[in-house]
Structures are given as C-alpha cells and as structure tokens.
C-alpha cells in the first residue's frame, strides 16, 4: 500500500489514541475537523467520567425519564443492542461493577492506584430495566444503576465519523479509536493494511505494540478486545475491564485477546467483547455468525474463525500504535 500517499492525522481523545487516515490527502483538514467534532460530541454524551454528560444525568435522575439528544439515544441503542445480541454477555449496566473494581476514573488515573478493593462486587444491574423511548427521545435508568457505554460508544463514534467523513470528502477513510477501526468509502487500491496486536506485548512506557499479524481490510470494522490491554491491580488481585455481568468480576476467559472483523465497528466490538466473556463457546458462536475472528489463548495459541486470513510471511515488528509510514 502506498502508505506515504495517505493523509494522516493522529491525536488523543476519549482516553486513548486516535488515528485518521484518508485516501485522498487533500481532504485531510476537513476530515480532521469532522472527526474532532464527532469525538467531542460522543464524549459529552456518553462519558462515565463527566458529571455533565448525558449519561451521568440519566443515571442521576432517580429513575425518572430524562430527555436526551439523538446522539445519546443512538449510543444507548447500540449498548442495548449489544446486550440483546449477546444474550446479556455484553451488558451496559456494569458501571457499578467497574467502580467496585476500582475503574472509577479515566483509565490512566485509575491504574495508578493499587490499594485493596473497598467496595463489594456488584453484578450488572440488568439491561432490560433500562428504557429508551426513541419517539419521545427519553431515557429512564432505574435508580442506583450506573451505565457504562464504554467500548460500544467508542466503536459507534468510529463508525459515525468514518461514514460522515467519507460522505463529506467523497473518498476512503479509516478511523482508529484506540484500536477500534472503522473504514468507509472507496479504500486505497491495495486496501487498508492493519496490524492486529496481541496486548501481551504492549509496552506502556514506550506506548509501542507488536503486531502479531498484518491483514488488509476494505470495508466494515475491526475491533480487538483483551484482558491485558486495560488491566490494573487492586491489592493482590489482577483485574481487567471486561466484566462478566453475572458476577461483577472480570471475566475469567480462556482467551487473552480476541479480534473480530464485521460489517461495522460496533458489531466487531460487540462480538470481540462477548467472545472474551463466552470463552470456548465463542468459537462456535463466531463461526455460526460467519464473523472472521482471531482468538488468542493465554499460552499464545491462536484459533481463527470464518476465513480469518492465514498469517503472512512477514515477521512482526515493534512499532508505536499506528506509527506506520
């Protein structure tokens, strides 16, 4: 791929890195502005760490209906769809569970504290109790329940931004929000070359990650979930952010990393997260859905599903996330 001819912009937002690539460099400025606006909007709508976010206001309304923006309604819809499509394995009502586990502020801050857990574990509050009325544009969250749209909102932002930018500049675009990738529009002639990382090799000091495999995608979304990427300690316990809704504990999975390609980044994210929670059952589930996936066991063994490409001949190389030429 003639990577040098791509327009490229990198930044940080939503607590992670952001990469924007456009096939036609002339559209980069407009694309960057659209992406910035989209990320700002999703943050003020869905952040769990902002008291002024719509999510925080809905959770603090004491069980009363709260008017919300179309964007928040869409993000909540994605979260509820994730719960339904995975039979509750991906549950947006795990906010209280994450707080109990110590993930009570943005990740960069939360991982700094290593004291013991002080709150009792809290299973998910139950996604069926959350009511979204899209006609009245109102949301009702039961009193005491905390939502965490987390990854689905980020994936939704990637999908929305990619679609918006492609429509605006009329060319191909790739949006990467912390590893959740969405592409739209006509891709470069040789497709988008993407490294798939196994976070066992992530170097937080150098912010570098070693690609385990490099693949080419042309449409849709690609997401990776891992029990290693966002992990922290509380006392003797090693914790991570993918919660089993039934226990409120970090999921005890046979997989350390799962990458999935799908029609959208939201779908890829839902599937990769659910696969971590489902463990061995995920292989059959992903196969029945025909979702190309790569699942990595804790010992490094790899299982591929539904025509996930075979490893190429090139060896992995250490590089910063999205530092391609």
């Amino acid at each position: 791929m003639p990577a040098g001819t791509l327009g490229r912009h990198t930044s940080n937002a939503l607590g992670t890195f952001v990469t924007l690539l456009v096939a036609e460099p002339g559209g980069l400025d407009a694309a960057r502005d659209l992406l910035t606006a989209e990320l700002a909007a999703i943050d003020v709508a869905c952040s769990r760490f902002r008291a002024d976010s719509e999510l925080s206001r809905a959770c603090a309304a004491g069980g009363r209906p709260v008017p919300v923006s179309p964007l928040f309604a869409e993000a909540l819809s994605a979260g509820l769809a994730a719960a339904e499509l995975t039979a509750g394995d991906v549950d947006l009502t795990c906010g209280r569970a994450l707080i109990a586990l110590g993930y009570d502020q943005d990740f960069a801050s939360a991982r700094q504290f290593t004291g013991s857990l002080r709150q009792p574990l809290a299973p998910a509050g139950g996604w069926r109790k959350v009511v979204l009325d899209p006609v009245r544009q109102e949301v009702t969250v039961p009193e005491g329940m905390l939502l965490d749209l987390g990854a689905t909102a980020k994936a939704l932002a990637a999908d929305r931004a990619a679609a918006t930018i492609a429509a605006a500049i009329g060319g191909g675009v790739l949006v990467n929000l912390g590893g959740d990738i969405s592409v739209a529009g006509p891709p470069p002639a040789e497709g988008w070359l993407v490294g798939v990382a196994d976070d066992a090799t992530f170097d937080s000091k150098a912010a570098s990650v070693q690609s385990s495999q490099e693949i080419v995608i042309r449409d849709g979304g690609l997401a990776t979930s891992s029990v290693l990427g966002r992990a922290w300690r509380r006392g003797d316990a090693r914790l991570h952010h993918i919660v089993d809704p039934r226990t409120g504990m970090p999921a005890r999975s046979c997989w350390r990393t799962v990458s999935v390609a799908a029609r959208t980044c939201v779908a890829a994210n839902i599937a990769s997260t659910a696969a971590i929670v489902r463990g061995e059952r995920a292989v059959t589930w992903l196969g029945e859905l025909c979702l190309p996936a790569r699942l990595v066991r804790h010992d490094g063994g790899v299982v591929t599903v539904a025509d996930w490409p075979a490893p190429g001949g090139q060896g992995p190389g250490s590089r910063a996330p999205d530092s391609g030429a």
């Binding site: 990577a3 790739l174 912390g178 490099e214 693949i215 490893p311 190429g312 391609g324």
Partner: peptide
C-alpha cells in the same frame, strides 16, 4: 473478508487494532 497482508517488502501497517480503546 479480510485478506492477508502482502508478504514481501510490505510497508508498516497504517493502523493497529488493539484493545486500548477499552474494547
């Protein structure tokens, strides 16, 4: 369907999928 990357003299990937976005 995702395809394997070209084998020979391939440039660095233009994007990397990790779980650091919280997924």
């Amino acid at each position: 369907t995702p395809a394997p990357a070209p084998k020979a003299s391939s440039p660095a990937p233009t994007a990397t999928s990790t779980s650091h976005g919280g997924g």
